[in-house]
């Protein structure tokens, strides 16, 4: 088994005297989808921010295998390298599309931005790639010059995905990407995420409170409660044969899907 792409060791973060994340260990490698589930306030969004290097942990570290094969601690990277990682080798799909997109910039500009950020200076190529990616996330080519402010919720999320994937990232973080969408729209998005992550061999860490989403998308799952991972393992094993009392409660609280 190859070394993990990203691994967290003893990640701990407190806000005042409230423990947001306590001693969290996890790892993920290419082609894997890991779901982090829990109720609001369980610390899962804080964990995602720690993994993304947006927040610094009080203790513990996140290690990442860079494209050159070297595994480095995010804390040692420095802000410039970390941000470069964020806009090239990583993607971050936000729950609120307004945080993940430039709402006044056209769909093509949104997708092209990361290419331009990597130094692409050929308009024709940027536009070509933008159109290609819009197609892959099932947005009509005719919408390439429309801003996402004119898009539906589902389209915005698909645009976010295109914007993130255009640079060929290896790791994509997703924070509740499907919440707030109609079920039919949600289904289409889930299918897209699953298909693209499998085709591209992405490592995906998805935070969700929706166990059905976790079941459909993820290979492995980590159940969080009060800042701790209380149960982890194969998604279907944890959901079908939950060991921890809290996981049993969580599973029992969901309408059968």
């Amino acid at each position: 088994m190859s070394a993990p792409l990203l691994s967290a060791h003893g990640l701990t973060k407190t806000y005042g005297n409230r423990l947001a994340c306590a001693g969290i260990d996890l790892d993920i490698t290419e082609g894997e989808v890991l779901a982090i589930v829990g109720e609001s306030g369980s610390g899962k969004s804080t964990l995602l921010s720690l993994l993304a290097g947006e927040l610094a942990p009080d203790s513990g570290e996140v290690r990442y295998r860079m494209r050159d094969g070297q595994t480095r601690s995010l804390a040692d990277l420095g802000p410039a390298a970390l941000r470069r990682l964020m806009r090239t080798d990583w993607g971050f799909v936000r729950q609120d599309a307004r945080q993940g997109l430039r709402m006044a910039v056209s769909a093509g500009g949104n997708v092209g931005e990361r290419l331009m950020g990597m130094g692409e200076r050929h308009y024709g190529r940027i536009r070509g790639q933008a159109l290609d990616w819009l197609g892959r996330v099932e947005i009509e080519a005719g919408r390439v010059d429309d801003p996402p402010s004119q898009f539906s919720g589902g389209m915005r999320q698909r645009l976010q995905i295109a914007r993130n994937l255009v640079t060929g990232p290896r790791l994509v973080l997703m924070d509740e990407p499907t919440s707030g969408l109609d079920v039919s729209v949600q289904a289409r998005l889930l299918d897209l995420i699953r298909r693209l992550s499998a085709e591209l061999g992405l490592a995906v860490i998805i935070v969700t409170h929706d166990l059905a989403v976790a079941r459909l998308l993820s290979h492995r799952i980590a159940v969080m409660r009060a800042g701790r991972v209380i149960e982890t393992g194969l998604t279907d094993r944890v959901l079908d044969d939950p060991e921890h009392a809290y996981t049993q409660l969580l599973v029992a609280s969901v309408l059968a899907a």
Binding site: P79, A80, R83, R87, R102, V105, S106, G108, G109, G112, E113, R114, L115, M116, G117, M118, G119, R121, Y123, I126, R127, V144, D145
Partner: peptide
């Protein structure tokens, strides 16, 4: 931050928008 790290990709977005 963008200036400090010379992250000027976004600057071209404006020009991209013009051309499109």
């Amino acid at each position: 931050q963008l200036h400090a790290l010379a992250e000027y990709g976004a600057m071209h977005v404006k020009l991209y928008e013009d051309i499109s």
